[in-house]
Computed example of a mutant assay.
Amino acid sequence: MQLAYHSEEITQDHFAAWVEWLYNIPVREWYDHSRTKEQNLIRFEQLLSTKSDDEQLVVLLDMFHLPERENKYNQNPFPHYVIIELTDDPDLWHLYDPDYRWRGDLPRETILNAMAQPTVAGGYTLHRGHAQAPQPADLAAYFAETFRADDNLLTSALRQIFDYHCDPARPLALADLGRALREMPVLSLRKYAYEHAFAFFWQELDTAFEPFDAECDRVEALCEGFRSLHFLAARIAHTGDRALIPDLFAAAGGAGMKISLCTISFRHQLIGLKDIACWAHDNGFKGIELWAIHARNQSPLAIHNAQWMAAQGLSVPMISDYLPLHDPDLLRSRILLPRIAHYHLKNVSGRDRLGVFAPSNVYSAASTRDGMVPLCEGL
């Protein structure tokens, strides 16, 4: 199981239909898949030399064979659609790449060679002579058709790949995780297109620039997050360190909430950590939050430790303990302080309830929480 930047099964029919509906720009495929590559290249040159000014010729070529173009991810192959136009020099063609915001003149033979590669086959003609601005109702229909409020295809695909390659039942699959995500950088780069969408709404709705600029910062953070995620996955594949797997799933959980189970829920049951972890895994939880007394009773030599839980796809995001605020030296200790990420302050509803924090009650499986309240709601 792996991500793929391009597939022969992919068609542009959906987008071609919407371009015509929104902008009144007919999109027709000129490439004839029943003919040979050579025949299609001949046909392309004929179309290029006879097309009108209202027509644009789009071709699918392999950018790996265009050394003049930047290929920062060294994709091979690198199928990509571009627009080709003639110049005054018959040996030079003009290549326009709206996706990467690049245009320039390249040798005709170089472009034809990139089109002739066995990795690519396709092309369209755009007729823009009667182009028009889209109607608001049509834009709304397109948005409703394509916007996925509850899912993201790339993030969902990544989770499926992580599930497959990190499954302890497939110990050999972990080493292939890096190969499965080889084309992730060129895919995640497309997330910058969100800026175009936000720019449209910013201008169409005539809103302030600052919120739009803030959204662009979030897009940048999203793309950086995908880069970090790819690096982490490659590190896990290279080292085989399963202890990092929970971090991988947590990083991929930006589009959805990761729910952990606290062992305090089982304080009235005689059940071990192994059984709790198996139950959490089987019921879709992504982590185990350890109640402090359970952590204290866990032997340093225990088999069912954090590494074992990581192999089950479970993290240990928190150890919940009750710390005495009257002992600041303990809270500032070099051992404890680096491990404290969050203080959850509690109070009591009345002086007669102070006993609720007595160690014999707080750490007891049969304890009561009667009188324990949020900090600002107590004394």
Rank of each mutant, 00 (worst) to 15 (best):
H342N: 15
L181V: 09
Y124H: 12
G256S: 14
M184G: 05
L330I: 09
D206I: 05
I340S: 07
P185M: 07
N76H: 10
E204K: 13
T239I: 03
P185W: 07
G355W: 14
L57M: 09
F147T: 08
Q46E: 15
Y192A: 09
A121L: 00
L61P: 00
A221T: 04
D97G: 11
L172P: 00
L222V: 02
A133K: 10
D138H: 11
G123A: 07
F200A: 03
L325C: 11
E289G: 01
D275K: 15
T36I: 06
W279Q: 12
N76T: 01
L222R: 05
E210M: 10
Q203R: 15
A255K: 10
K286F: 04
P324C: 09
V59G: 06
I293M: 05
A366P: 00
K346A: 11
R242Q: 08
N76P: 00
Y194R: 12
L95V: 15
E195N: 14
K346C: 11
P185K: 07
S228F: 09
H65Q: 10
L174V: 04
H196C: 05
L41F: 03
E29Q: 14
S52K: 09
L261V: 04
A169G: 13
N40D: 06
L187A: 07
A251D: 03
P324S: 12
L60A: 01
R353D: 09
P359F: 05
R170L: 13
K37T: 10
R332L: 13
D275R: 15
Y73I: 00
T155G: 12
A243H: 10
A358N: 14
A114Q: 03
